[in-house]
């Protein structure tokens, strides 16, 4: 449904995305995961025909996003990050306007349909300026669904919502995703895991990993981040810990200890505790902390720089000491 090949976009001297290639099949819900400024919005804007890429090609439903921009725009529903609405219009007026722009037959029925879909019938006559952030998000979504698009592109659909609204919007996306192709961006890892069939991790304009959420989850929760803290002298700890079986590598050496990453499936804490105490360090704390998204990005990007080409999925797994569960 979505084909992207070697997509590159420069803003002046700054390169926002570089040589991005991926595909999204019909009926997939794909999460576009990355920190702020990674190039998610840029990629989505190019796909929606908002702006052309500097280099590379992209097509949606077989139509080139530059050459056949209007055809693409007819088939795509897009909700930008800052849900663009006219505050001085009512919800109904706004949706009717968007329906008219898309030349929809029976525009009024279509408006009623999408209002029902996003549960906003009660506020149809209300002014958009009076809506809460969550309701605005839903109106934005309604706008994108008016023409029953083949592809739905959502930029950070749950940002700024309260937990109840987040839950609701995620359910809505899953519901929609049963019939349509959905591409959504987020920087929240659990969100991608809950909603998507597949996740693309992007950083600094490049795809650093591509996987199903299950496999990603396995990979990410496989290694444990362990914090080790001692009182007093801590020098030489790294040399002591590194040889222990099950220790993948040292993440960070601190004044009062260190953080390390363990191999998946092994709890190395008893072993470390023994080694530390035997070496007469004064152990004060030893605990596992989950890998934060930032660390995963750090890891993935670091690993990426160490290989020349190819998908990082494999290299990341290899680097982490995983065995044979690549999906490439």
């Amino acid at each position: 449904m979505i084909q992207v090949e070697g997509l590159t976009k420069d803003y002046g001297a700054r390169r926002a995305i570089e040589d991005l290639s991926f595909q999204v099949g019909r009926g997939e819900i794909v999460g576009f995961l990355g920190p702020n400024g990674a190039g998610k919005t840029t990629t989505m804007r190019i796909l929606c025909g908002y702006m052309p890429p500097t280099a590379g090609k992209a097509s949606i439903a077989g139509f080139d996003v530059i050459e056949q921009s209007l055809e693409v725009r007819k088939r795509v529903g897009y909700v930008p990050e800052t849900v663009p609405l006219y505050p001085d219009m009512t919800v109904w007026e706004y949706l009717k306007f968007m329906a008219d722009l898309r030349h929809l037959p029976d525009a009024e029925d279509k408006v009623d349909d999408v209002l029902e879909l996003v549960h906003m019938e009660a506020r149809a006559e209300g002014y958009i300026s009076n809506l809460s952030k969550g309701m605005r998000q839903r109106v934005g979504l309604a706008q994108a669904l008016l023409h029953q698009p083949e592809v739905l592109i959502l930029d950070e659909p749950t940002i700024g919502l309260d937990p109840a609204q987040v839950f609701e919007v995620r359910n809505l996306i899953r519901e929609i995703g049963r019939e349509r192709t959905v591409m959504l961006s987020t920087h929240i890892l659990p969100e991608a895991q809950q909603v998507c069939n597949r996740v693309l991790i992007i950083n600094k304009g490049r795809i650093v990993a591509e996987d199903s959420p299950e496999q990603l989850q396995a990979r990410l929760s496989g290694g444990m981040r362990i914090a080790l803290r001692v009182a007093g002298e801590a020098s030489g700890l790294a040399e002591l810990i590194t040889p222990i079986k099950g220790v993948n590598h040292i993440l960070e050496v601190r004044q009062d200890g260190l953080d390390l990453l363990s191999d998946p499936g092994v709890d190395v804490r008893p072993e470390i505790a023994r080694a530390v105490v035997n070496a007469r360090y004064e152990l004060v704390e030893l605990k596992s902390i989950g890998l934060s998204l930032e660390e995963i990005f750090l890891q993935l990007t670091r690993e990426e720089s160490s290989i020349e080409t190819g998908l990082v999925t494999e290299s990341a797994l290899a680097d982490n000491g995983h065995e044979g569960e690549t999906n490439a």
Partner: peptide
Amino acid sequence: RLGTMELLLTAPVR
């Protein structure tokens, strides 16, 4: 300013 330009430029409007 409203950001609705993005909406109009991604709608099927020349």
